[in-house]
Structures are given as C-alpha cells and as structure tokens.
C-alpha cells in the first residue's frame, strides 16, 4: 500500500481528483460547490508526495460522479489534475481536465470598478485566453492569481 493511500482510503463509488497542485484542494472543492452539505463523503489529502508534482493534493468525493464540464473549470487552478470515476472500487474512467472556453459565476473580477462588482444581479463571466482569463464585461485579464479570485 502506497504512502498516500494510507492517508486517504479508497472509495467504493464516486470521483477522485488527483494530481491537484499542492495547496489547491480547498479551492477545488469551492469551485465544485462541494461543502459537505450534500451528505457525500469527502476526503481531502493535502501536500502528499507525488512523483510528478513533488507535492500534490487529492480530493475524493463519494457517491458522486463529476461531469466533464464540471471539472473543466478546475483546469484554471489545477491544469495537471486527473479525474478518476470509481465504481465498485475500480477506476472505470480516467480523464484529464481540458480548458473550457469560458467560466461563468466562479471567479470574481479583480477590477473593483467592474460592473460585476457593483451589486448587480449578474454572474461574472470570463473568457479563457492563452495564459489566463478575461472578464467579459470590463476586459480585465487575470493570470497567475486566479485562485485568489475564486468566489463561489
């Protein structure tokens, strides 16, 4: 049994999000809107050793299979993440996250003067551009600091 399996046990059915950049697991849960209130079992491993990333986070959500569109938004903060769909302890599907064309309602605009920060009844919407995301309303570009602007 490998080191990280000792820390976070196997699940019977659900989704395992692996190879998340160290320190981003809680942001992953925030983006997915998972806070435990749904009653699913949720396990989080943070800063576990990884051959590929050095240190990585792992998120396991029981009894819930995440769709590709749900997880694609994770590519913004965890571009190396792999998504494993588990049924009866077996990985039946293994996918990488792919960058979506746009992201709605997940990030807040860093421009304080953007109309989306003015108490309007509107979801933020960002286009995904080459090396970041761009606000559809005020055109502000957000690059390395995306995780600081998660607002869900």
């Amino acid at each position: 049994m490998s080191d990280h399996e000792l820390r976070v046990s196997k699940i019977r059915d659900g989704t395992v999000i692996d190879h998340v950049e160290g320190g981003q697991a809680l942001n992953v849960l925030a983006i997915l809107g998972i806070d435990g209130s749904e009653g699913h079992g949720v396990s989080v491993g943070m800063n576990v050793p990884s051959d590929r990333l050095g240190r990585k986070d792992i998120v396991k959500v029981e009894e819930r299979e995440l769709s590709q569109s749900e997880v694609d938004v994770l590519s913004l903060i965890a571009p190396e993440a792999t998504i494993n769909i588990v049924r009866d302890f077996e990985v039946v599907e293994k996918n990488r996250v792919t960058r979506p064309d746009s992201v709605t309602g997940v990030l807040s605009c860093p421009n304080r003067n953007c109309i989306t920060n003015a108490d309007e009844p509107v979801d933020t919407r960002f286009d995904v551009v080459a090396d970041g995301v761009r606000c559809d309303y005020c055109s502000t570009i957000l690059r390395a600091d995306i995780a600081e602007h998660i607002d869900v």
């Binding site: 421009n111 003067n113 953007c114 109309i115 989306t116 920060n117 003015a118 108490d119 309007e120 009844p121 509107v122 606000c135 559809d136 309303y137 005020c138 055109s139 502000t140």
Partner: peptide
C-alpha cells in the same frame, strides 16, 4: 436601484438607449 433594473424600465420608454456609466462593463450589462 440596480443598473439592470433601470435599463429594463427605460427600455419601455424608448427605441434606443445612450448610456454613460462610471463602471467598466456597464454598457455590456
């Protein structure tokens, strides 16, 4: 009142709107 509500109301009064607003992205909204 929000900008969204204001323009929805004014839309009923006019065939087009000219908008100046202090926030970036206001016209898009």
């Amino acid at each position: 009142e929000s900008l969204s509500d204001t323009v929805r109301v004014i839309e009923g009064y006019a065939d087009a709107l000219v908008l100046r607003h202090p926030s970036e992205g206001a016209a898009t909204l």
